[in-house]
Design a protein around this nucleic acid. Structure first.
Lengths: 201, 201
DNA sequence: ACGCTACTTGACCGATCGGTCAGATCCTGC
DNA sequence: GCAGGATCTGACCGATCGGTCAAGTAGCGT
């Protein structure tokens, strides 16, 4: 695996294909995306796509696996961690992860349940469920679990499907979006028995 | 024009097909659902499905149109209305609409952007955009618009895709869910007096 | 009993699906 | 210049897609 500044042809083509595929999977869904579309959009033939990736599923896996690994890392840190800043740290890292992996998150969070038979999606679903349980364990109230579900799902919706409902010229920049998401998700997920934090980082 | 208590065969078959189709569209997506699957699952042949509905798109339209009309009615009342209880009323009606039309909402809110070329979906998308603008007009802060997006998208996520992430035996009953959603969405969407945290616009 | 309508179905259509395979073409080390 | 692997592609495969069509069946008014 070369770390060249000048990427080899193989790596470049595979990366292009992964990016195009991820865009398509996130916008029209995994089932709604054909290998032919991906190939056309990337400027290759369908055969080339299947040369670089053994199957459509393998292409999906290659496209979203990094985001899932990162998500699992965030989750493991949260579960293993302790201290008062845990929840705030989780929110910050999840927001960053959402912003940097919009398409992948859309695939495994929004389309996840309908693709559960794919191993990579099953792994992602297991991670999401683990996070839900970790939240549920430490705060048993249904209200809090709903807050978690709305926060996570709502943020994912906002950054993917929901974007198309906003005025194109009114879309906030990512930096602003990150700050705003910190505030709103902080309100949703922060422990309620304390006064709501009004200061941001 | 039968308003029979004993429904005609036509009405019953069409209703069965609509329900099965809606379930499938919501769980595996419109693109991922085939007429053959719908027919098999409903106990009819594919030809019968196409006898009752001229096309797959017509079946989708028949399945989700009532929910969209209801949503438009809620929206019109909100826009035309005034008074202090407006927002609270909106939240209550939207929650009821979500609970009673989970699958339809999932289709036109979550899958909406990817199906925008279908007239019925375009109509739904226009309604959602109208609601977003109505919210945005009266509360200019980006934070509030994000709160709206997270609330709406999050609730839709929670009731559809998100359900599969919860323990099956821990799923709250609809009554409890409605109360909880009132609380959480009320927190998110209700006007706040408190000073805004730092915004960058 | 008849005819009409509502309903259901299997056979069939062209298009497209994911995937295979046998070459072309290109690049690099020798 | 040549061998050999990497890359790319068109032709092709069986299956399935949405959709059409004609034939058949069931039920009801007359």
């Amino acid at each position: 695996m070369p770390t060249d500044a000048q990427p080899t042809t193989r790596v470049r083509a595979a990366d292009e294909l992964k990016q195009v595929a991820l865009d398509q999977f996130a916008t029209v869904g995994f089932a709604g995306t054909s290998l032919q579309h991906i190939a056309d959009h990337a400027g290759y033939s369908k055969s080339s796509v299947l040369y670089h990736f053994a199957s459509k599923e393998a292409l999906l896996e290659a496209a979203i696996e990094p985001a899932i690994s990162e998500f699992e890392a965030v989750l493991d840190d949260f579960i293993a961690g302790r201290g008062s800043g845990r929840r705030r740290t989780l929110v910050a890292r999840v927001v960053d992860l959402l912003l940097e992996n919009r398409q992948a998150v859309h695939v495994f969070l929004i389309q996840g349940p309908s693709l559960a038979e794919l191993p990579i999606i099953a792994r992602a679903n297991a991670a999401v469920r683990r996070l839900a349980e970790a939240i549920g364990d430490e705060r048993e109230s249904v209200v809090d679990q709903v807050r978690f579900g709305i926060g996570l799902g709502g943020a994912a919706f906002l950054l993917t499907a929901g974007r198309s409902f906003a005025d194109a010229d009114a879309l906030p920049a990512d930096d602003e979006l990150r700050d705003v998401l910190h505030v709103v998700l902080g309100e949703l997920l922060a422990p309620r028995d304390r006064p709501r934090p009004t200061t941001t980082d």
